[in-house]
Amino acid sequence: MKQETLKQLLEDQVAKKAVALATDIDSGEQTLIYRDAASGPDAEHGEILSITRQSILDDRNKVHDVGGRRIFIEVFNPPLRMLIVGAVHIAQPLSRMASVTGYDVTVIDPRASFATDERFPGISLNGEWPDDAMRELDPDRRTAVVTLTHDPKLDDPGLEVALKSDAFYIGSLGSRKTHAGRVERLSAAGFTETEIERIHAPVGLDIGSISPAEIAVSILAQITEVLHRKIEGRAAA
């Protein structure tokens, strides 16, 4: 690998720009490929470009046979994101554990006394109302959304935007009774049953969690399961 190629990859990671490296593993030639640009010997190779751009979308590293050449495609996507609505107690361990796991975490809460740097050191905080914040942060298929406030005034607007997005995971804290009320409100707001079923509620895997940190473990475990097993709709739990 050329030193400049390595430097460029690292710069793109800092800039949170999706890029992939296509390596001919017999010749060693390498091409950097972006969604809308490419540089290197295969920068004009239509098949390699299209395979690579699909790999960026699928987050997959793989060796492909391209006209008898072995091309290794390695994707360098920006980190997965987690958007947490509610700077509540559970959000403290959840945001830290998710950061360690590799997520780029943002905690959304318009209540200034909750969303403080003291309570969430090193975590991005967003003080907008959850629907505005969610629209601005624009969850995509590499984003998990978790609402934790218990307060429909805050959770519902965030959920309404999340349900219209491609977020790979949506979870919402609250008992079955709380969730039944939520389902009613979302139905009244025009969401279909299938859309509402995307919400994991009660949130997290059922592992008997009691403390906020244990609940965070169950939520992160469920998100991990959905991420890697690509479970459709509600989790197996």
């Binding site: 987050d59 997959r60 060796v63 994707v75 996507n77 590799g102 991420l227 890697h228």
Partner: peptide, 9 residues
Amino acid sequence: DGNVATGLS
């Protein structure tokens, strides 16, 4: 098939 989702680097 050697397919692995990268997700979290």
